[in-house]
Design a protein around this nucleic acid. Structure first.
Length: 596
RNA sequence: GGCCCCGUAGUUCAAUGGAUAGAACGGAAGUUUCCUAAACUUUAGAUGCAGGUUCGAUUCCUGCCGGGGCUACCA
């Protein structure tokens, strides 16, 4: 609000002083850097061509004009080409009070119109979830919350990749070496049991390849001719032909995997409005491919395989149906996109999928466009970076993964031992304590992941446990808990947490003002995070706020102050900080404890 | 080989083309008769290299060096 007004008045200043119309969006107005005296800064370099005067003079002229037009501005200073404006303490106090009156401060009005469909998670039913999936799930859940806070109607969907050659590999290994073991008989969580056979397949397959290569085959030949691979492909054909026995085993194993996923999702705190299964979308994909073939936008090769030729668009040829008629990943993704469009007619479809699939999504959009699907242009791939280990990327087949369930266990135990060391569990019941460890452990994990720009690769070192001090989730949670404790005491002393008409202080301490200024940024932070599809914006903001609040808390007594009006103001500041921290954390899917 | 992404303190992360490149961890030194010390304060320490565009470049462009991904009738 104030920024908009500043921009308008600056425009009129330029017009009055230099007879030049400028647009607000062409002005360089920013928040003043922390160590410099000022609230907003106008960078005047770009205006010099109009003023034809030195930067200092131009800045001073504009500053002088603004002073006469805006009572909120109490003074200004000029450093080189930077015009630093200082707003009155009364302005900031009034702003805080008006914010404290809004029930949903920071959140934006509901937008009517079609929804956004957001796909995330998308597990394969041949292996359990690992740290990479955790990043995906946390990003997806948080983005949905952020988009909702921006007023969008969001439909969260999950696409379970439950068919394909990789599933057949697990099935084959189980048929050969499974001895009919079950999650119950083995004591293994369903998805972990399946994962065991996926790894086993790979091990035996590699042995076969080595054997064939010893007999003189090339690696490529060996990979194709290895009996295990031939058998897996046979299972895929049988599956697509709806072979009874194959389907029965497939159903059984998939249900184990899915039960495992549900447990993990619940623990991680993520959920979905609708779950799609690749097994029920690939046929629609096949249908689209056949249509494309009839319309002449796709081609059939001599061996019967069907292709999209995208070489004229700087991409390659892409197979859409194998020569034996079975589907590939792309086939079902075409069908899923269509189904999703038919289901919701969304304004856009966002896919939270790792950047290793950038090429896949380029192709998907181009193929859909060729098939005449106008929604192709409204597909957005939120391409997030890999989570890497110190020794490189994780590989499921080679067992070098950080398992999602194990990691959550570890976070819980670390939270527990840290909390016990600090002697903070004495007053808690067993259940309360366990809930607290869960909140803190997950808070640390989620913040650790979400504070990083989604687009960038990030590193996780299993040998160093995730921190609980400094720029971390528990730091913010601790700030929140201290606030709760303080506000309890304020209530007990008879203070209202929200604004109730009383005399306002006329001036602010610099720490008070810093907190108020940060609080005022909350709505634009939510907006920025929504436009950029970037939860890290919210995470880093939360940390800044908690940090500044802790400084305020350290230096300024809230309740131990003689002036009642000052106490009221500080209680408002504290209350608003609590509100904003809680909301920010909820946008990240992180819970906050009232005690810790 | 072709296409794409990334190089910031010892480490992990920040920085709409703007001021003296911010934090955190780790290192060094402090703060508790005072609202929770999971906090706060002080301190040392970084833009891979070379050009270019610009009043101004970590940011945009080119080349080089280094790392990663994709380039499957896997997903």
């Amino acid at each position: 609000m104030i920024e908009k007004k500043l921009l308008e008045v600056i425009c009129s200043a330029v017009e009055y002083l230099y007879q030049q119309r400028v647009l607000p969006e062409n002005l360089g107005l920013e928040k003043t850097r922390k160590e410099i005296d000022g609230d907003y800064t106008l960078v005047v370099f770009s205006l010099l061509k109009f003023s034809k005067k030195a930067p200092e003079i131009t800045a001073t002229e504009i500053g002088t004009y603004l002073m006469t037009k805006m009572p909120e501005i109490v003074r200004f200073n000029v450093i080189k080409g930077f015009l630093n404006l200082i707003l009155s303490d009364t302005f900031w106090i009034d702003l805080l009070i008006s914010e404290s009156k809004q029930p949903e401060f920071g959140f934006h009005k509901q937008i009517s119109g079609p929804p956004i469909v957001l796909e995330y998670s998308s597990p394969n039913t041949n292996k359990p979830l690992h740290l990479g999936h955790i990043r995906n799930n946390l990003l997806g859940y948080s983005l949905a919350e952020i988009l909702k806070a921006n007023g969008h109607h969001v439909i969260k969907v999950n696409l379970v990749n439950d068919r394909g050659i990789h599933i057949c590999k697990s099935m084959l290994a189980y048929m050969k070496w499974g001895n009919s073991e079950t999650p119950d008989s083995s004591g293994l969580k369903g998805d972990h049991l399946i994962g065991k056979y996926y790894v086993l397949f790979d091990k035996k397959y590699k042995e076969e390849i080595r054997g064939l290569m010893d007999k003189g085959l090339t690696e490529e030949e060996a990979e194709k001719q290895a009996p295990l691979m031939v058998e897996a492909q046979e299972i895929l054909r049988k599956w697509e032909a709806k072979d009874h026995e194959t389907l029965e085993l497939w159903r059984k194993m998939n249900s184990w995997a899915n039960e495992g996923f549900i447990t993990t999702y619940k623990r991680l705190g993520v959920n979905f409005d609708k779950i799609y299964f690749e097994s029920s979308t690939y046929l629609l994909g096949k249908k689209l491919v056949i249509e494309g073939l009839e319309n002449g936008v796709l081609i059939r090769k001599e061996d019967g395989s069907v292709w999209a030729d995208l070489r004229d668009e700087n991409l390659d040829e892409k197979v859409l149906l194998r020569s034996d008629g079975t589907s590939v990943y792309m086939t079902q993704d075409l069908g899923t996109a269509q189904l999703r469009y038919d289901d919701f007619h969304p304004s856009s479809m966002i896919y939270v999928v790792g950047n290793e699939q950038n090429y896949h999504f380029d192709v998907l959009k181009k193929v859909l466009a060729r098939l005449g699907k106008e929604y192709a242009s409204r597909i957005f791939h939120l391409s997030y970076g890999m989570v890497e280990l110190p020794e490189g990327r994780m590989k499921s087949r080679e067992g070098t993964v950080v398992d999602a369930d194990d990691l959550m266990d570890e976070m819980f135990f670390t939270a527990e031992s840290t909390t016990r060391e600090l002697g903070k569990v004495d007053e808690l019941s067993k259940e309360e304590a366990s809930q607290l460890f869960n909140t803190i452990g997950l808070g640390a994990l989620k913040y650790f992941i979400l504070k990083v720009d989604p687009k960038k690769n990030m590193l996780f070192d299993p040998r160093e446990s995730i921190d609980f001090n400094g720029n971390t989730g528990p730091f913010i949670q601790y700030t929140y808990a201290r606030i709760c404790s303080l506000l309890e005491k304020a209530k007990a002393a008879g203070f209202h947490l929200k604004y109730n008409h009383g005399a306002k202080p006329e001036s602010l301490l610099s720490r008070e003002k810093e907190v108020i200024k940060l609080l005022a940024q909350f709505p634009e932070i939510i907006k920025e995070a929504g436009v950029e599809l970037n939860p890290a914006v919210v995470a880093n903001y939360s940390y800044d706020l908690a940090k500044v609040f802790n400084q305020f808390y350290q230096e300024i007594p809230v309740l131990k102050e003689s002036d009642k009006n000052k106490i009221k103001l500080r209680v408002y500041i504290t209350f608003m900080t609590m509100d904003v921290i809680k909301k920010s954390m909820s946008l990240l899917g992180i819970e906050v404890p009232s005690k810790m």
